[in-house]
């Protein structure tokens, strides 16, 4: 009994072992499997240590930095355009019933189309250039954000709006001081969904059509059977996805954590 309590305390204690140990175990297993497993010595499954070394080399040579910067620029541009337009249209739809009734069928029709489904169309419409990945990210970000913003605004309790009216608030004050703050948790859900999605979409767009960026680097590495470069790029991508989510999480806690369960 005492031993069990001790293990529990160590595992779930201040050191947060329950969070760290599985990660260490994963990379150790990867290292061991690559060195002693069926693919040992083969170029198709390099050990984690070699991937790390390659990643450092790629950053030192500037190759990774150059491609990463291109990808990051596209993600930020697409995310900004998609976020502004998604939240803007979402606010209009959530706030004005007539706009909701008019746009809702179109949004419902287009939302289920996977973002990559737009790729062939966009390639024909805008050609293969810098605008293409930005456009595809914007589309991919727009729909979940628009949907979540509209749903968030529509779910704000009517009694709260009525109370604000009686207290003398104008329509603008009600929108900015009552409705948007209360719709914020759902808007953040849309933002978090979209930020991860934007990295997945930029990678796909770069792999298919653009000659620069992490996706393009992966495609080049694939043709040279450089799995270590592919894995390095994927690790960078995954770290970026995680960072964006963390940053949004911090923003969410800072902005609305005091009065929601995210405190």
């Amino acid at each position: 009994m005492k031993t069990m309590t001790f293990i529990k305390n160590v595992w779930f204690g201040n050191l947060n072992l329950w969070k760290i140990v599985p990660v260490i175990l994963f990379f150790t297993l990867w290292e061991l499997a690559a060195r002693y497993g069926p693919f040992a010595g083969s170029a198709v499954f390099p050990p984690f240590s070699e991937v790390l070394l390659e990643m450092v080399a790629l950053f030192k040579s500037g190759v990774m930095m150059k491609n990463f910067a291109s990808t990051l620029g596209r993600v930020l541009a697409g995310l900004c355009i998609g976020t502004i337009s998604g939240i803007g249209v979402g606010i209009l739809m959530g706030w004005q019933e007539k706009v909701y009734q008019s746009l809702s069928p179109i949004i419902s029709l287009l939302y289920p189309i996977p973002a990559l489904g737009w790729l062939p169309l966009l390639m024909l419409w805008i050609g293969i250039n810098e605008t293409l990945p930005v456009a595809i990210i914007s589309i991919g970000v727009f729909f979940p954000l628009c949907y979540n913003t509209a749903a968030g605004i529509r779910s704000v309790e009517k009694k709260m709006i009525r109370a604000a009216h009686i207290l003398g608030a104008s329509e603008k004050q009600i929108l900015f001081q009552v409705i948007l703050p209360n719709a914020a948790p759902q808007i953040f859900t849309g933002l978090k969904l979209s930020s991860g999605m934007s990295w997945r979409m930029v990678l796909a767009a770069e792999m298919v059509a653009i000659p620069t960026g992490l996706g393009a680097l992966i495609m080049k590495a694939e043709s040279l059977i450089r799995v270590d470069i592919i894995m390095s790029s994927l690790v960078v991508l995954s770290l970026m996805c995680l960072s964006f989510e963390k940053i949004l999480g911090i923003m969410e806690r800072k902005l609305i954590g005091d009065w929601t369960d995210n405190a």
Partner: peptide, 18 residues
């Protein structure tokens, strides 16, 4: 409503949670 000089305590209170 607000120009009628009336205060209203709703049954559901409708406090602003944020």
């Amino acid at each position: 409503p607000f120009k009628r000089g009336v205060g209203y305590l709703f049954q559901e209170l409708a406090l602003f949670p944020h």
